[in-house]
């Protein structure tokens, strides 16, 4: 059959453009990583990891930011996980198709789309000022917990939906109560999905600087936080601080900080993949 319209050429052109788009997207990723490694590689050493910020770029380190980020994440997880899983259980296992569930659902979808900086304003007013927690680790963690809560709830609901309803029926038919069914049968099966989703939610929180800066986390901390109410800093804030300075020495520090931040994220994501794969093996033998 003769090629009546030049559709073949147009199609090839389109494919080329689409491939170009992919190359641009993935090229960005590569450029980003290579750029950070080239700029910051020279600063990456033990001294950088164990030193506190300093006026002299070559003496500055990220100890307080790294430790701050770890503390912050542990606290955020401790607040957001139980509440997020509880909310998801309530929506999936208790209210069902009730109008209240619909209201909460739309509300959560909207909360997930609220800019993170708005959570910072909420944290500033609610935790820092009204509850009098100050610009502390605890106030930061609570702010972050509110930020990741919608993501944890959405991920948990998805995990709960993968548990077949026949398992629930089997348990109810033996006279188990709702909670016994959830605790003994549903949660263990959904746990890997919940953990994977929650780790990914937390890894999003790790990279967030805006809400912490807005609620007033400090950018220069030369000590490790020793209590829940101690002031703190975190990796993205420290990086932001260094990027914002004019001296190239600090820019190298920022790049090195970025490498550390990405390494932390890589570890978290690897953990999520590991949990998911282990769980799949167990479920399908």
């Amino acid at each position: 059959m003769p090629d009546r319209h030049p559709s073949k050429i147009v199609e090839r052109l389109f494919k080329l453009m689409a491939l170009g788009a992919l190359v641009i997207a993935l090229g960005t990723l590569t450029a980003l990583l290579v750029d950070a490694l080239l700029d910051g590689g020279g600063r990456l050493n033990w001294q950088f990891l164990t030193s506190f910020p300093s006026r002299k770029p070559e003496q500055a380190g990220i100890a307080s930011a790294l430790v701050g980020t770890i503390y912050l994440m542990i606290l955020t997880a401790a607040c957001a996980l139980p509440i997020g899983v509880g909310a998801a259980l309530y929506l999936e296992e208790y209210v069902g198709k009730h109008w209240l569930a619909r209201v909460i659902e739309v509300n959560i979808a909207n909360l997930a789309g609220v800019p993170s900086i708005i959570y910072g304003l909420l944290g500033l007013e609610l935790f820092v000022r009204m509850m009098g927690l100050g610009r502390s680790l605890l106030a930061g963690a609570l702010t972050m917990a509110l930020l990741v809560l919608p993501i944890v709830i959405i991920a948990t609901r998805e995990a709960l939906r993968t548990v077949p309803s026949s398992i629930r029926e089997a348990s109810y038919a033996l006279g188990a109560s709702r909670w016994q069914t959830i605790w003994h049968q549903v949660l263990p099966l959904a746990l890997p999905g919940i953990l994977t989703g929650s780790i990914l939610a937390l890894s999003r929180a790790i990279g967030e600087a805006a809400p912490l800066i807005t609620m007033g986390a400090l950018t220069y901390i030369a000590f490790l936080p020793d209590s829940l109410l101690a002031p703190f800093t975190a990796l993205p804030i420290q990086i932001f601080n260094w990027v914002s300075r004019p001296q190239p020495g600090f820019h190298a520090n920022a790049a090195a900080g970025i490498v550390v931040l990405l390494a932390v994220l890589l570890i978290m994501n690897g953990l999520a993949v590991y949990v998911r794969q282990r769980a799949q093996k167990r479920l399908y033998l």
């Binding site: 077949p164 026949s166 348990s171 006279g175």
Partner: peptide, 19 residues
């Protein structure tokens, strides 16, 4: 209703053992 299910057991269409 839970005590009823203690006295009245049930087996379903598709085998549904707990994993």
């Amino acid at each position: 209703p839970l005590t009823i299910r203690l006295k009245v057991g049930m087996v379903f269409q598709k085998p549904n053992p707990f994993p």
